[in-house]
Amino acid sequence: MRTQLRAALAVFAVLVLLVGPLPLLFAAMPDARRLEWAVLGFGLYAPLVLLARWYVRRAERNERDLVRLVEDR
């Protein structure tokens, strides 16, 4: 259970670090309308999907590990 929580917190931290600086970036470059469209409209979704995929893989591996641990005993 602790490993699952650790995976969740890691993904959440990556999410915050990824999305959090974006408003600052856009505030620093007020002329970059096209960049804002590209990032918010399209680009940001791919990393979000990859993060979710990594988390699901990780969680399922943790579950399998736990099952193996229990069965070996």
């Binding site: 993904v11 959440f12 999410l15 940001l44 979000l48 993060l51 979710a52």
Partner: peptide
């Protein structure tokens, strides 16, 4: 979308 991710986690 980020909310869905947090929901998943």
């Amino acid at each position: 979308t980020a909310g869905y991710l947090v929901l998943l986690l």
